[in-house]
């Protein structure tokens, strides 16, 4: 597979990101499976999730494209705001109170009937694909939440067993199991049980 000059070139030069993400992913995966220390496992988990984020973000890249925020000439407000200020400069209607950008919005609401135009195919090439970014925002949040819960679990385990080494925890659990006595409901002596 790697013997071919062409393939290697194809992988390393044209798809470098994808190779890096695979390497990161493997580091994380190995740590999650093989490490004995619970915290190290979680570090592996973080690397693993980060690798996937790198992969998704790589999908969204477009050659020569900018970030997915409209430039001034495409901005649904920027363009019109300029335009409107010329038309009715004295028009200072105060409409909305909760808006974040008062100047633009008050003009906007005054002229609510205008329609920002749809971009042409040519123009869409200039912006990176927003979808993978959104997806990864979600994945990051999920990753943080999982990590938090996992850390809480680690603390709970540490509190109970005094160690975060997996084999030591297992040994403690086995010792606990061996020491467990089944509650004596078997006693031949009659015993009132009311649960």
């Amino acid at each position: 597979m790697f013997g071919e000059e062409g393939l290697l070139n194809e992988l390393l030069v044209e798809r470098f990101n994808y190779c890096v993400y695979v390497v990161l992913l493997l580091i994380g995966l190995y740590a999650m499976i093989a490490k004995n220390n619970l915290i190290k496992k979680l570090i592996g988990m973080s690397i693993f999730q980060t690798a996937i984020i790198l992969f998704y973000v790589s999908i969204g890249v477009k050659e020569g494209a900018t970030i997915p925020i409209y430039l001034a000439e495409h901005d649904p407000h920027g363009h019109h705001a300029e335009h409107i200020v010329h038309l009715d400069e004295a028009n200072t209607i105060d409409v909305s109170e909760e808006n974040a950008t008062p100047l633009r919005l008050s003009h906007e609401q005054d002229h609510g009937h205008h329609a920002p135009r749809s971009l042409t195919d040519e123009e869409t090439l200039g912006y990176a694909n927003p979808l993978p970014h959104v997806l990864m925002l979600t994945a990051i949040v999920v990753g943080v939440a999982t990590l938090g819960v996992a850390l809480a679990l680690t603390q709970r385990i540490y509190r109970a067993y005094g160690t975060i080494e997996e084999d030591a925890v297992l040994a403690a659990i086995q010792a606990e199991d061996a020491a467990t006595v089944i509650p004596d409901v078997l006693a031949t002596k009659p015993k009132a049980k009311k649960g």
Partner: peptide
């Protein structure tokens, strides 16, 4: 705590 260990 056993449940926590299993959950991990």
């Amino acid at each position: 705590a056993r449940a926590a260990a299993a959950t991990f």
